[in-house]
Amino acid sequence: MADRYSFSLTTFSPSGKLVQIEYALNAVNQGVTSLGIKAANGIVLATEKKSSTSLIDASSSSKISLITPNIGMVYAGMGPDYRVLVDKARKVSHTGYKRVYNEYPPTRILVQDVARVMQEATQSGGVRPYGVSLLIAGWDDGVLPEQERKEAEAEMGDDDEAKEKQVKSGGKTGGILKGGPSLYQVDPSGSYFPWKATAIGKSATSAKTFLEKRYTEGLELEDAVHIALLTLKETIEGEMNGDTVEIGIVGPPADHLLGYEGVEGARGPRFRKLSPQEIEDYLTNL
């Protein structure tokens, strides 16, 4: 009976708004600030790990999660909702992709899958929207932006060929995967946006203003981590140290995390979390 009479909680108001989604966004905007910055050679995700009492064992909880070896995620909003989404994202990356193609999904595909999960919660019966916004950062194999630029320049030499190639690889359904880093934000409504740098949560607006001032094209990952910590410093309420700040990076393959060595072609995960010690090191250099 329950399923037959479970109407959607998310219904349009006469003015055309879905107030449940706006309430969910309010929940996000009360959440702890998280931010992401895309660099030329990677991405940094950073957030503050707040605990109400010093008795909490901070080292055993974490807000930044690995989804696939090359994709990681952070949130602003409700922690329990986030963990459900992490589970679903990890699951769908296998059932919907790895078990079919024997490779992990590209970042955009995973973002679309997670966004679909969040959108369905705005239209289904008996559920409420997820009270989180996500930042999803990932690295895709394929033609890197700088490589592509070089090839295009080389081809400008003989015009006809370049044009022909453009026609061939043109169109939305042709071509090959554009590789490199990408950073997305997903909202409770299920909409998603690609960013160079952004922030979500309580101090998102001021953090974004700060990022706009600090961001430059062709940023290196090390500089991005630096900027991330500076931005966080502006908004953070408590003390800043390796236990109160969490950082995840998408960078070069971390072969030391592979667990073994000597296998040719084996690559470690590109996404990894920085240890408290590493964060402390960055903080002392701030």
């Binding site: 193609y101 490779e103 359904t173 071509g175 090959i176």
Partner: peptide, 20 residues
């Protein structure tokens, strides 16, 4: 696949698709 990913499928990926 082409509509979703906006690219052509590679032979390796296609082989795994056939297999699964």
């Amino acid at each position: 696949y082409r509509l979703r990913e906006e690219r052509d499928i590679s032979p390796q990926t296609f082989a795994n698709l056939v297999s699964s």
